[in-house]
């Protein structure tokens, strides 16, 4: 192993401290025995216990999870369809306009997206609740899915689909049996992206949520305005933990896949000499 120079060590330390110090503090204070957030009074897991008793937080967590699953699933279906049409549709009328319009929400300020959706829901007389949040989240996360899936479709060997057609499958069967299984990793990561976007969205959700449908970010944000409680630290630590585990699993899966492909290729080389 090469030793790093003092300059590299310093810049590495500073960089990581900048990124992770706030989170480390949060994790440490979530185990604080004291009710006062800034005063350390010894280690205790009591706030985790209290969190489990807090109905309001649990309800909000449930709403968030429901919204995230529903909206990311909807966004994945719509986004994949949009990507397919844009990559495979050829040069139809207004194609450039369509692709521009699909990617516009990526750069649109969230406040404006939220406000315009609110106006729409009021205009058509739709009661604000879980459904409106799901629709709003689908709207803005769909374009992320579309970006991820279309970049995979662009490198997809079109002759695979043609071969399926040639062997007698209808265009839909070819998509279902050939295209979808091959682009599945991109579709899944699109879904995960939409899921995390929905999990931590505060701005749009606060525009379109109703009294019965408070999501976790809204709950945390309003609770913090009354003062930071150790319970919130505990809750945030749990969220960090969940996200970390998710990221580790995802990277392990992709690493194992590439390793297996490499081994297979080597085995094939050996077998055929």
């Amino acid at each position: 192993m090469k030793r790093l120079s003092w300059f590299n060590v310093t810049s590495l330390t500073l960089g990581f401290a900048f990124l992770y110090l706030p989170m480390v503090l949060l994790v440490i204070y979530s185990f604080n025995a004291s009710k006062l957030v800034t005063v350390w009074a010894g280690f205790s897991p009591r706030w985790y216990g209290e969190l489990m008793q807090n109905e309001a937080f649990l309800d909000a967590a449930l709403v968030t999870l429901k919204v995230a699953v529903a909206s990311s699933t909807l966004a994945t279906i719509l986004g994949t369809m949009a990507a397919y049409v844009l990559v495979r549709g050829g040069r139809f009328m207004g194609r450039t306009l369509f692709s521009g319009m699909i990617y516009a929400p990526l750069v649109m300020p969230e406040v404006i997206t939220g406000l315009s959706l609110l106006l729409l829901f009021i205009g058509i007389g739709m009661d604000r609740g879980v459904l409106t949040i799901v629709l709003a989240h689908t709207t803005f996360s769909m374009c992320y899915v579309s970006v991820v899936v279309s970049s995979r479709l662009m490198t997809f060997d079109r002759s695979l689909e043609e071969a399926a057609l040639d062997l007698g499958s209808s265009p839909w069967t070819a998509f279902r049996l050939i295209t979808l299984p091959i682009i599945a990793p991109a579709v899944i990561s699109g879904w995960l992206l939409a899921f995390t976007l929905s999990l931590d969205d505060l701005v749009i959700a606060s525009f379109v949520s109703g009294p019965s449908s408070t999501t976790l970010p809204i709950k945390i944000f309003s609770a913090v305005r009354l003062g930071v409680s150790p319970e919130i630290n505990a809750l945030s630590t749990l969220m960090i933990g969940i996200v970390t585990i998710g990221v580790i699993i995802a990277s392990l899966i992709s690493k194992r896949n590439s390793l297996r492909a490499q081994n297979d290729a080597q085995a094939a080389e050996r077998a055929t000499g």
Partner: peptide, 20 residues
């Protein structure tokens, strides 16, 4: 007549084998 309705089959230059 679409390709899936023709009694014609093709061997592709890239082979186009279904990898999965």
């Amino acid at each position: 007549v679409p390709p899936n309705k023709r009694a014609v089959n093709m061997m592709f230059q890239s082979y186009a084998l279904f990898p999965h």
